[in-house]
Amino acid sequence: MATASNPARPRAPHLQVYTWGPHMLVSILHRATGSGLATVGTILFVWWLAAAAAGEEAYATFLDVFTLANGRLNVVGWVLGVGLTWAFFQHMANGIRHLFMDLGANFELRANKQSALATLIFSVVATAAFWAYIVLGR
């Protein structure tokens, strides 16, 4: 009879069996950022269209949230702007990672984990660089 401590016994594919790794994290983040970008982007686009159609006052309210005024941005604008920017860069980097995997490369565990970490690092650095460029001037 096989026991639970027997290492030769096959394991069922369950989350408690797998060890958590960066490749699992970026897989989940890829789905979440894709859904988030689509949902939040659609909501903001509809808000922009409705504000433009509603007149100058409604459009000015929209612009107050999403534009720099005296070097300051509304907190909602910061959260949405930085969050959407990070989600875009993370989704893009992981999409490029998956492109290479679709070509048959990067299936070795070590290289796969390194590329997953690279997407996380790239997304943070690219977001910081993008917002530094926006805020500090051109």
Rank of each mutant, 00 (worst) to 15 (best):
A2T: 08
A2L: 01
P7D: 10
A12Q: 09
H14C: 04
H14Y: 06
L15T: 11
L15M: 12
Q16K: 10
Y18A: 09
W20N: 08
W20H: 13
W20G: 02
G21W: 04
G21V: 03
P22G: 01
P22K: 08
H23D: 14
H23Y: 12
M24T: 08
V26Q: 02
S27P: 06
S27I: 07
S27G: 14
I28N: 13
I28V: 14
L29I: 15
G34H: 07
S35P: 00
T39C: 06
T39R: 09
V40F: 10
I43M: 12
V46I: 14
V46K: 12
V46Y: 15
A54L: 08
A54S: 15
E56F: 15
Y59A: 06
L63T: 13
D64H: 08
F66K: 04
T67E: 01
L68E: 04
A69P: 00
G71E: 12
L73S: 01
N74Y: 04
V76T: 15
G77C: 04
W78G: 00
V79R: 04
L80F: 14
G81C: 03
V82S: 03
G83N: 12
G83W: 14
T85W: 06
W86D: 00
F89E: 00
F89L: 13
Q90D: 08
H91S: 07
M92E: 04
M92P: 02
A93I: 13
N94D: 14
G95Q: 10
I96Y: 04
R97N: 03
R97G: 00
R97Y: 06
L99H: 13
F100K: 10
M101H: 01
N106E: 07
F107A: 00
E108S: 13
L109M: 11
A111R: 11
K113R: 14
S115H: 07
S115F: 09
A118Q: 05
A118D: 03
V124M: 09
V124C: 02
A126T: 02
F130S: 09
A132R: 07
A132G: 15
Y133N: 14
V135G: 10
L136P: 01
